[in-house]
Each structure stands twice: as structure tokens, then as C-alpha cells.
């Protein structure tokens, strides 16, 4: 599951705009295969955490109602050159994390 996250963070007037894309199926619970009628096991990101220089700026709790390969954008106070870390954990316990520098 390496490199499932792409981050872009840009600072302007003390405010950082974060944009991130994750690669994930985001299969919600309660769906059935249309042909076989078999239930499809849910598989979706439950929690996304974003930290900047050890400050948690955003925690997102998700259901399977967020679209496949999720996109997230947020704004917060920060400086150029600070390190930003975005990580996710899904309902199967898989996780990934990616670091980037604020530009």
C-alpha cells in the first residue's frame, strides 16, 4: 500500500491550503454483488489525520460514503518549510502515511 497518498500544501499569507489525494476503493458496507447477490465486504478509510510539525490540524472520520480514491482539501495556519504528515487508517486496519513540505 505504499505511496497511496499525494499531498500538495501551499502557504499564502500565513494560511496553508492542503490538497491531498488517496488511492483507496472506499467500498461501503451493506452492498451486494449485483450478479451473485453475495455481500461485498466493506473496505473504506475510517480516519484521516493531518499533522503539521506535531500539531494535529485535522482529523477526518469517514464512512464508505466518501468517493473512491478520496480527495481532501483543508486550510489552516502554518509556515513555509514546515513538515506536513497525512495518514489514514481503514476498517481492515491497513494504513499509510506520507510526508511533504509546505511550499
Amino acid at each position: 500500500m505504499a505511496k497511496s497518498i499525494k499531498i500538495r500544501a501551499k502557504e499564502k499569507d500565513g494560511v496553508v491550503e492542503l490538497k491531498a489525494l488517496m488511492t483507496h476503493p472506499m467500498q461501503p458496507s451493506g452492498q451486494k454483488d449485483k450478479k451473485t447477490g453475495e455481500p461485498i465486504p466493506p473496505h473504506f478509510i475510517q480516519e484521516v489525520t493531518c499533522t503539521v510539525a506535531d500539531r494535529t490540524v485535522l482529523t477526518a472520520q469517514w464512512s464508505g460514503g466518501v468517493s473512491k480514491n478520496p480527495y481532501i482539501a483543508s486550510m489552516f495556519k502554518g509556515k513555509k518549510g514546515e513538515k506536513i504528515t497525512l495518514s489514514w487508517v481503514d476498517n481492515k486496519g491497513e494504513s499509510d502515511s506520507q510526508e511533504a513540505e509546505i511550499k
Binding site: L58, A60, W62, S63, G65, V66, S74, M75, F76
Partner: peptide, 11 residues
């Protein structure tokens, strides 16, 4: 669908 919890300095 989603709940975003704002942390330090978040808009």
C-alpha cells in the same frame, strides 16, 4: 458521510 474535526489553527 464525514466528520472533520478541526485542530490547532484550522480554518
Amino acid at each position: 458521510i464525514a466528520n472533520f474535526v478541526m485542530g490547532a489553527g484550522a480554518m
